[in-house]
Structure formats: structure tokens, C-alpha cells
Simulated scan of single mutants.
Amino acid sequence: MTMLPFPEAPQPTPEDTEAGRKLFAGPVDFVKGVVAMSGLPPADRLEICFAGRSNVGKSSLINALTGRKALARTSNTPGRTQEINYFDVGEKLFLVDLPGYGFAEAPVAVVRQWQALLKSYLSGRATLRRAFVLIDMRHGIKKVDEEILDLLNKAAVTFQVVLTKADKISAAQRDKTLDQVRKALAKHPAAYPELLVTSSEKGEGIATLRAIIATMQ
């Protein structure tokens, strides 16, 4: 039997599932919003970051992951939309929420400023262990997503694709999207070789994502 490239992440063991549950059942607090590299908190623990184009469901996923209904909204108030937002998870790791990319209507200067900050962060943060790149399952990988994937490749940052809104499509659509994503990722050496399919609304994939994060070294 031929193994598919970029298979879906396997179900975690009961032990890893419990480790993930315990990690996110503890305190998760907003730390700060950062607009320059000089404002980053001390690099004294592992970091993971979440990236995705606007309206991909990033806030919903972070809220489902942490079990908080409005945690991500803390970082989405006016004036914070172009910041890198830090959350402390049980004083064990930083969860980093990157602003949605794909600024079709944003001023050119704002886009340049954000792109420069993003590049500096991705290439210069030694404690960043993995980037989770969110892709809307209804649309697959688009050109704007390719830009961030290329950036992660150049920065040599391992990234894992998390497909969102799995409850919004049919089984046939799901297979079609997975095929498109697998083909697109084949040219990205920094891509982690497992996909994660999620639904924030239905809870699909959330326990697996928690376990993946909790067992990262």
C-alpha cells in the first residue's frame, strides 16, 4: 500500500491527549502586542505561532484550542490588527498570534511594515519551534498562502498546515482540497509531513492539535 504524501496527523495516544488537555486547561493569558522586534518578550521558552489569511478562522481555532470563548478577541481590538500578539500558556510556552495576511485593502505602507516585521520575526526568533499555517478547507492553498509558505521556507521555519472549517464541506470536497494541498506542499521543504484537519465549531482535530503542541520539545 502506497503511503500518501502529507497524510493526516494520526490520533494521539491517551497520554499525549491528556498532556494536551492539561496544558490548555491551565492559565492562558494575553501578554502583549508587538509592533517591532525590540518589543518581543524574553526568548526564555518554546514558541509556536499561528498564521493565516484574513477570515480563515484563526481566532475561532485559538479560542477552541484554549477553551476560552473570547481569548483571541483580546488581540483583535482596533489598533492591534497589525501586531504580533503573545499569549502565555501555563508559563510553559508562548502562543503567538500573527495578524491575518492578504491585505487587499490595506495601505501600501501598512503592508510593507507588516511584511518587514513578519520576516524579521520568522527569521530571527530562535525559540520559534513551529508555525501552524491555517488554510480554509473550502478554498485550499491560494497564491497569498504561497507567499507565506515561501517566507517560512526561506526562514527555515518548520510549518504545519492546519485545515479549518472542515464541517463546512462535503466528503468529496474534503478529498479534493486535501489533494490540492498535498500537491502544493510538495515543493516546500519546510513543510511538516502531516496535515491536521479541524473544525472549531464541531471540535474536530482540536485534541490532536493540543497534543501536538504539548509534546513538542
Rank of each mutant, 00 (worst) to 15 (best):
M1V: 13
T2L: 13
P5M: 04
P7S: 10
P12L: 07
T13C: 10
D16P: 02
D16A: 15
D16I: 01
T17A: 15
G20R: 04
G20D: 09
G20C: 10
R21E: 14
F24H: 04
A25P: 00
A25G: 14
A25L: 14
P27T: 12
P27F: 04
K32L: 15
G33M: 06
V34H: 04
V34Q: 06
A36H: 11
G39C: 05
G39L: 12
G39Q: 15
L40F: 04
P41Y: 04
P41H: 08
P42I: 12
A43D: 14
D44N: 15
D44A: 12
R45W: 07
R45M: 15
R45H: 07
L46A: 09
L46G: 05
L46N: 03
E47Y: 04
I48M: 07
I48Y: 07
I48S: 03
A51K: 01
R53Q: 13
R53E: 09
S54G: 10
V56R: 08
G57L: 01
S59K: 07
S60I: 08
L61Q: 01
I62R: 03
A70K: 15
R73I: 04
R73Q: 13
T77Q: 12
P78Q: 12
G79W: 03
R80V: 06
T81I: 05
E83S: 14
N85Y: 00
G90A: 07
L93D: 09
F94A: 02
F94H: 10
L95H: 08
V96N: 06
V96P: 11
L98W: 08
L98G: 09
G100I: 02
F103M: 02
V110P: 02
Q113Y: 09
L117C: 11
L118C: 11
K119D: 14
S120W: 01
Y121W: 03
G124D: 10
G124W: 13
A126R: 13
A131F: 04
A131P: 06
L134N: 08
I135S: 07
R138T: 12
G140V: 08
K143W: 02
K143D: 15
D145W: 01
D145H: 08
E146W: 00
L149D: 03
D150V: 02
N153S: 09
N153I: 03
A155T: 06
A155W: 06
A155C: 08
T158Q: 13
T158E: 14
F159Y: 11
Q160L: 14
V162R: 00
L163R: 00
T164A: 06
K165Q: 12
A166K: 08
A171V: 14
A171Q: 13
A171N: 09
A171G: 01
A171S: 12
Q173I: 02
Q173E: 15
D175P: 00
T177I: 05
D179Q: 14
Q180C: 01
Q180H: 14
Q180E: 13
R182T: 06
K183C: 01
K183Y: 01
A184C: 08
P189Q: 09
A190G: 08
A191D: 05
L195R: 05
T198C: 12
T198L: 08
S199N: 11
S199F: 10
S200Q: 06
E201V: 10
E201L: 14
E201C: 00
K202H: 13
G205C: 09
T208L: 07
L209M: 13
R210W: 00
I212G: 00
I213P: 11
A214E: 04
T215P: 13
M216W: 01
M216T: 06
